[in-house]
């Protein structure tokens, strides 16, 4: 069997996330439509949308600086970097895998979101600025939850490398049922709902500008730049799903060797697992109502509670 060199596997990690992510978005909107009794868009629709947008011309608002056009490219570059740091396909760390820990990945994702928000602030469009300011405000209150989840990981594994936590989780059933692990995973899942702009935080497909957070930010971008932002938000979604699946919830099906067959199986397994998470997310989308803007703090405080309890039980020796 063909043995792949490590850099190729690393490139495959990035490629998997980038090229599979619009498909995952497509599957989620298809499943959601089916649950609502609609036929829904084709699963490949996000790819067609991207292809169409890349062919369109792009306009920038008057008086916006060069950063307006630079931000989508830089943000997309950030989303390409993170899959190198987290276990996407392999159980072993790849050459560049140890250049950043979970916090490093989090900082890069936050940087991407900062640049998109700055570009939105530069447009002068009230809705884009509204979205940007909301994203930053609520980002500031979800950040402590992420930090506490990372601290939990650090207490459990004594490092904060995602590969080590994945290896710890698969090492036995006692690691799976420990409350610290379950609570941290649940808190992370709630943060993912926030970060990917799903119900109960915001409606993903709506056109109601006043309730928008994530969706409002690229209002003024058009053409290839808008395509990059859309693609970037799909990629971010799959990155978060991968982080949740391959580090916390289900780090099974990853390649432990460099054989081509194993790596291909890992790609298929990741996509299958991400689709399962996507189905869960669309069930949540169809079950709950969107929270009023000022009640998002309640949602975040629930996630915070889970993460704090994870740390408490660890300190008491029961986690």
């Amino acid at each position: 069997m063909l043995t792949l060199p490590l850099p190729v596997i690393q490139a495959l990690q990035v490629a998997t996330v980038v090229f599979a992510s619009p498909g995952i978005t497509g599957v989620i909107s298809q499943v959601e439509a089916r649950m609502q009794g609609r036929r829904g868009p084709r699963i490949l629709q996000p790819y067609y949308d991207l292809a169409k947008l890349f062919r369109k011309e792009s306009l920038a608002p008057l008086h916006s600086g060069p950063f307006f056009l630079l931000a989508p490219v830089l943000a997309f570059a950030c989303y390409l970097t993170v899959p190198m740091l987290i276990p996407v396909l392999t159980t072993y760390a790849l050459p560049l895998g140890n250049m950043g820990d979970i916090l490093g990945g989090g900082i890069i994702l936050a940087f991407a979101s900062f640049m998109v928000a700055t570009a939105a602030a530069e447009t002068g469009d009230p809705y884009a600025q509204l979205g940007a300011s909301r994203a930053k405000t609520f980002g500031a209150i979800t950040e402590p939850v992420v930090l506490l989840v990372v601290f939990t990981v650090a207490l459990v594994t004594s490092t904060d490398l995602p590969y080590v936590l994945a290896a710890t989780v698969t090492s036995g059933p006692d690691q799976l049922v420990r409350p610290a692990h379950l609570l941290a995973s649940a808190a992370l899942f709630m943060v993912i709902l926030y970060e990917t702009g799903r119900i109960p935080i915001e409606t993903h497909t709506g056109t109601i500008e006043l309730g928008m957070i994530e969706e409002a930010r690229p209002f003024e971008h058009s053409g290839p730049y808008y395509a990059l932002l859309k693609w970037g938000s799909s990629a971010k979604q799959l990155i978060f799903y991968t982080l949740f699946l391959n580090v916390f919830a289900a780090p099974w099906g990853l390649a432990s060797t460099r054989e081509l067959g194993d790596v291909l199986f890992a790609i298929v397994a990741l996509i299958a697992k991400a689709i399962v998470v996507g189905i869960v997310v669309s069930v949540i989308d169809n079950t709950f109502a969107k929270l009023r803007l000022f009640r998002i703090t309640e949602f975040v405080s629930a996630a915070f509670l889970l993460a704090v309890l994870a740390i408490f039980t660890l300190y008491l020796g029961g986690g």
Binding site: T157, T168, S171, G172, P173, D174, V177, P179
Partner: peptide
Amino acid sequence: ILTVARPAPTVFDGTANT
């Protein structure tokens, strides 16, 4: 990869605590 995990409680303890 070094796996120096903080010792996990047994499956019974973990379940009860959960």
